[in-house]
C-alpha cells in the first residue's frame, strides 16, 4: 500500500471540497473494497478522506419513500425493522452478499461503488482497460467465466459485483448526491455506466460528488419477493448469476412485477421488457419462462460464460417461482 495523507471529515461540505480540490483523493467509508485494491496496488490514492463521522447513517420513513443514509451499514440495513417490513427484497439481497463481518463494515454508498472483481482488473501484471486504459481487455479472450453477457463493449466485459444494487435497481431507487455544484438526484438505473469506450469510469458521479442517501419509493412489493443468488459455493461467494424478483399478485394474477439481474453486466441489469410480459398474466411456470426468454434477448456469451445463457433464464424462473410462493 502506498503512503497517503489521511484526514477525517466531520461535515459533508468539507469532505466534498477536499475531494474536489484533489484529483488524487478518495473517500473512504467501510474501506472493504478500497483497501483490498490498495493492498494489491490496483488503486493508489494519495489522500484518503474518512467520511465515517458524517451524519449519514439514518434509515427513515419519509413521505412516499424510505430513505437510507449512504453510511448506513449493510448489516444494519438488512436487519432494520422498517427495511424488513417495507423492502424485504433489499434485505434479502444484502444478506446474500459477503459475510456478516463485511456487512458490518460496508456502507450502502460504498456497496454501490465497489469495483468489479474481474481477475484482470485485480492483477497489475495483466492488461485491463478499466485499471489502465489502453492496455486492452484481458478477459475478452481470456478466462471470462464470471463475465458479462449484456451491455459489454470490446474494451471491457467486466460485471458489477453488488447484490444490494440489483435489488435497488429493481425497486426504482434514487441516489442522492451532493457535490461542489450542489445537490442532485440520480435515478438508480443511471448511476452505473456501461463500459463503452471508457471502462475506467464506473459511474456517472461527477468530480467531488458524495452519495448521501438512497431513496426507495413506497411500493407494494412487501411479500412476493425473492433474491436468488447462484454461486460456486453455498455462501460467501460472488454471483455467477443473481436475480431480484418482486411480484404483486391479485389472487394468482400478476398485477405488477420488478425484475433485475446481477452478474451479467457492467451494471445491475434491470429487465423492464420481461416485467411487462409478466403483468396481467397468471403466476405460472409458463409465464415465468416466457418472461425469462424475453429477459435474455440480446444476451451474448464468450468462451467460458455460455452457461449464463441458460443459468440466467433458469434463475429468473426460479426466482419468480420463489417470489410467487413467498
Amino acid at each position: 500500500m502506498n503512503q497517503f495523507q489521511y484526514v477525517r471529515a466531520s461535515k459533508p461540505k468539507a469532505a466534498i471540497e477536499a475531494l474536489a480540490r484533489d484529483p488524487n483523493a478518495q473517500f473512504i467509508a467501510g474501506g472493504t473494497n478500497l483497501l483490498d485494491l490498495m493492498k494489491r496496488g490496483v488503486m493508489a490514492p494519495q489522500k484518503l478522506i474518512d467520511i465515517n463521522k458524517l451524519p449519514l447513517d439514518k434509515i427513515e420513513r419519509q413521505e412516499g419513500n424510505i430513505r437510507i443514509g449512504a453510511l448506513a451499514l449493510n448489516g444494519a440495513v438488512a436487519e432494520d425493522k422498517l427495511v424488513l417490513e417495507k423492502l424485504p427484497l433489499l434485505a434479502q439481497a444484502l444478506n446474500a452478499g459477503a459475510s456478516a463481518q463485511l456487512r458490518n463494515m460496508a456502507t450502502v454508498g460504498g456497496n454501490m461503488l465497489q469495483r468489479t472483481r474481474c481477475p484482470y482488473f485485480y492483477d497489475t501484471a495483466m492488461p485491463c482497460n478499466k485499471r489502465e486504459p489502453g492496455t486492452g481487455c484481458g478477459a475478452l479472450e481470456g478466462y471470462n467465466r464470471m463475465h458479462a453477457i449484456f451491455g459489454f463493449s470490446d474494451k471491457c466485459i467486466a460485471v458489477h459485483p453488488s447484490d444490494m444494487s440489483v435489488a435497488l435497481a429493481a425497486l426504482d431507487a434514487t441516489v442522492l448526491v451532493s457535490g461542489p455544484k450542489g445537490d442532485r438526484r440520480i435515478p438508480f438505473a443511471e448511476l452505473h455506466r456501461l463500459p463503452g469506450d471508457q471502462p475506467h469510469i464506473d459511474t456517472t458521479l461527477g468530480a467531488g460528488e458524495l452519495i448521501t442517501a438512497v431513496e426507495v419509493p413506497d411500493n407494494a412489493f412487501t411479500r412476493h419477493v425473492h433474491y436468488l443468488k447462484v454461486r460456486e459455493r453455498a455462501s460467501y461467494a460472488f454471483a455467477l448469476v443473481s436475480v431480484a424478483a418482486a411480484l404483486q399478485l391479485d389472487g394468482s394474477t400478476i398485477k405488477d412485477a420488478r425484475l433485475a439481474m446481477g452478474g451479467v453486466a457492467h451494471k445491475p441489469w434491470r429487465l423492464a421488457d420481461a416485467e411487462k410480459t409478466l403483468v396481467g398474466k397468471p403466476a405460472t411456470d409458463e409465464t415465468f419462462r416466457q418472461a425469462a426468454e424475453v429477459a435474455m434477448r440480446g444476451a451474448k456469451a464468450f468462451q467460458h460464460n455460455a452457461y449464463k445463457l441458460k443459468l440466467g433464464p433458469n434463475s429468473i424462473v426460479q426466482a419468480l417461482k420463489n417470489a410467487a410462493a413467498a
Binding site: 472493504t32 483490498d36 458490518n104 463494515m105
Partner: peptide
C-alpha cells in the same frame, strides 16, 4: 461490540 474483519480497516479509522 460488532464483529468485523480487522484486515480491511485502517487502524486510524478506529479512533
Amino acid at each position: 461490540g460488532k464483529r468485523i474483519n480487522s484486515c480491511l480497516t485502517l487502524a486510524v479509522m478506529q479512533e
